[in-house]
Simulated scan of single mutants.
Amino acid sequence: MRIFLGCVGRLKAGPEQELCSDYLARAAALGPGLGLTGFHLTEVEEKNKSAGLKEREAAKLLAAIPETALIVALDERGGAMGSEKFADWIGRERDSGTADMAFLIGGADGLSPQIRERAAKTLAFGPQTWPHMLARVMLTEQLYRAVTILAGHPYHRP
């Protein structure tokens, strides 16, 4: 199963970018033996901040992922999921034949209703509101952690 990350905004050089790159590289190295490939990150930007911004961002995010991808929206209204449950869910989707899974993170104003409605799952990192750039780091770490859990690696110690 290929994993896609679609994110509004571009990470500047710095610790957030370094962490995301590191976690994605680790997941990509371990994933193929588990049937998890890709870990494709696409960043989209919309320079025009006028009315309809979230809809234009949504169009760019959806254009960046396979049309049939199972969409996971990262949104503060979503449900929280522990790391082991998250890994198990990814493994079940992989085993059930899901070819592509796409995690989408909106910009400062969040995701459009269009994406939230299309999402198979809406996920939140707890009840707090997180900056969208930090949410990206948290997502990449959790994807790497999920891969290590599925591989039986000792990285995850509950």
Rank of each mutant, 00 (worst) to 15 (best):
C20T: 11
C20H: 05
C20S: 07
S21P: 00
D22H: 13
Y23V: 04
L24S: 02
A25T: 09
A25E: 08
A27D: 10
A28N: 11
A28Y: 14
A28D: 12
G33R: 12
L34M: 10
L34N: 08
G35I: 07
G35V: 06
L36D: 03
L36K: 05
T37V: 09
T37H: 14
T37C: 14
G38P: 00
G38T: 01
F39T: 02
F39A: 03
H40P: 03
H40N: 06
H40M: 08
H40W: 06
H40S: 10
L41V: 05
L41N: 05
V44K: 00
V44S: 04
E45T: 11
K49A: 10
K49P: 13
S50T: 12
S50Y: 14
A51F: 10
G52M: 08
K54Y: 07
E55F: 10
R56L: 09
E57H: 04
E57V: 02
A59S: 12
A59Y: 04
A59D: 14
K60H: 07
L61S: 05
L62M: 11
A63R: 07
A63K: 07
A63E: 10
A64C: 05
A64N: 04
E67Q: 13
E67F: 11
T68W: 01
T68N: 04
A69Y: 11
A69W: 06
L70R: 04
V72I: 13
V72A: 06
V72K: 02
A73C: 06
L74F: 05
D75E: 07
D75Y: 03
D75M: 02
E76D: 10
E76A: 15
E76G: 06
G79Y: 09
A80F: 13
M81P: 01
S83D: 12
E84Y: 12
E84P: 07
K85M: 14
K85D: 14
W89A: 13
I90T: 01
G91T: 14
R92H: 10
E93I: 03
D95W: 02
G97N: 00
G97M: 05
D100C: 04
D100K: 07
D100E: 07
D100V: 02
M101D: 00
A102D: 03
F103Y: 08
F103K: 04
G107K: 01
D109W: 12
D109I: 01
P113S: 12
E117R: 11
E117W: 04
R118P: 05
A119N: 08
A120L: 15
A120S: 15
A120H: 09
K121R: 15
T122C: 09
L123G: 03
A124T: 04
F125D: 10
F125Q: 05
F125K: 09
G126N: 03
P127V: 01
Q128P: 03
T129P: 09
